[in-house]
């Protein structure tokens, strides 16, 4: 069960550091930016698309059921990314266009 402790623990260090970094980088966010930040973070977890592409390459070319599942996975993953970034951009552009008028 615990054989993995004998292996390379570098990934574990990496993960723990990422947790703290994730908390630190947004710690000082002002309330007005909560919505765009949530939307932006939402877009970033769309990086799961990378996994969908990798797994799609492992499916046999004549396994039609799984090809459809994989196609859907890539589609919804992309939707997460594009929708997330475009919406965040739209919200933020509203904030900044107001400043120019000043």
């Amino acid at each position: 069960m615990f054989e993995f402790l004998q292996g390379d623990l570098a990934p574990l260090y990496f993960i723990v550091l990422c947790v703290f970094l994730g908390i630190e980088i947004i710690a000082n966010v002002p309330a007005i930016l909560h919505t765009p930040l949530m939307s932006g973070a939402n877009a970033i977890h769309g990086v799961i698309l990378v996994g969908a592409i990798i797994v799609m390459n492992q499916v046999a070319s004549d396994d039609y059921v799984n090809l459809i599942i994989g196609f859907l996975a890539v589609f919804v993953g992309t939707l997460n990314i594009s929708g997330g970034f475009f919406v965040t951009g739209r919200i933020l552009s509203m904030f900044s266009s107001k400043k120019k008028k000043q």
Binding site: F14, C18, I23, A41, I44, H45, G51, V55
Partner: peptide
């Protein structure tokens, strides 16, 4: 978190990093 775990499964560094940033930041938010 799901993204990060999938990243561990594929040994894919960018999925781990992206997933964990969002996981941690999401909890704080």
């Amino acid at each position: 978190v799901a993204t990060a775990l999938a990243g561990i499964m594929f040994h894919n560094i960018i999925m781990i990093a992206g997933g964990i940033f969002v996981g941690a930041a999401g909890v704080l938010l």
